[in-house]
Amino acid sequence: MLHIEANTKRKNGFTLIELILSLGLLSLILTTSFNLYGAGQKSYENENNKILAQQNARQAFLWLSTSIKQARSVEVISENSIKIVTSDGEKLIYYFENGVLYRQKNNGTNPIAELSQLKFKHPKDKKYVEIFLAIQVKKGDDIIIKTKATPFGSWIN
């Protein structure tokens, strides 16, 4: 009996309570780590979407404003389309359809950018064209650009 009693009094391992506490602490640490990783991933995706939307808006803005400023003449065909005659007589048509800005040149059509809204306006007796474009990143978070561009030729129909 002394032999059994001597072996049971010396404890070299973990008790059941210590094991349960360490597993609980480990699960708490892992849960917190995965939640932080998920939040970081979601934040990264949101910011990436916002950057892509800003690049789309910038692309559309640069194409439109540069073409209008370098034009000999500009004609606002409708609220969503504009006809530009360049200094060398080339005709360009920019139009907005199904959420995409297109450029038509030499019987070919190319998409420029994805937008939520695009409007052209030519105020009477003014030599500039107003451009309004918007992109919706997510609900309630829009990127809006408004500008006025005057063609080099200052001749607007």
Score class of each variant (00 low, 15 high):
Ser43Arg: 09
Tyr44Ile: 13
Glu45Arg: 09
Glu45Ala: 15
Asn46Lys: 14
Asn49Pro: 12
Asn49His: 01
Asn49Glu: 04
Ile51Arg: 05
Leu52Met: 00
Leu52Ser: 12
Ala53Pro: 05
Ala53Ile: 00
Ala53Lys: 04
Gln54Arg: 15
Gln54Asp: 08
Gln54Ile: 05
Gln54Glu: 13
Gln55Ala: 07
Gln55Lys: 07
Asn56His: 10
Asn56Met: 04
Ala57Cys: 09
Arg58Ser: 15
Arg58Ile: 01
Arg58Trp: 00
Gln59Arg: 05
Gln59Asp: 04
Ala60His: 12
Ala60Gln: 12
Ala60Glu: 13
Phe61Val: 00
Leu62Val: 01
Leu62Glu: 13
Trp63Lys: 14
Trp63Cys: 13
Trp63Ala: 14
Trp63Ile: 15
Leu64His: 14
Ser65Glu: 15
Ser65Leu: 04
Thr66Trp: 08
Thr66Asp: 14
Thr66Arg: 15
Ser67Gln: 09
Ile68Tyr: 05
Ile68Glu: 12
Ile68Asn: 05
Gln70Cys: 08
Gln70Leu: 12
Arg72Ala: 12
Arg72Thr: 10
Arg72Pro: 00
Ser73Val: 04
Ser73Asp: 10
Ser73Gly: 12
Val74Thr: 11
Val74Asn: 07
Val74His: 10
Glu75Thr: 08
Glu75Met: 09
Glu75Gly: 05
Val76Gly: 04
Val76Arg: 15
Val76His: 07
Ile77Pro: 00
Ile77Tyr: 03
Ser78Met: 02
Ser78Asp: 06
Ser78Trp: 04
Asn80His: 11
Asn80Ser: 13
Asn80Gly: 08
Ser81Ala: 11
Ser81Phe: 05
Ile82Tyr: 02
Ile82Phe: 03
Ile82Arg: 01
Lys83Gln: 10
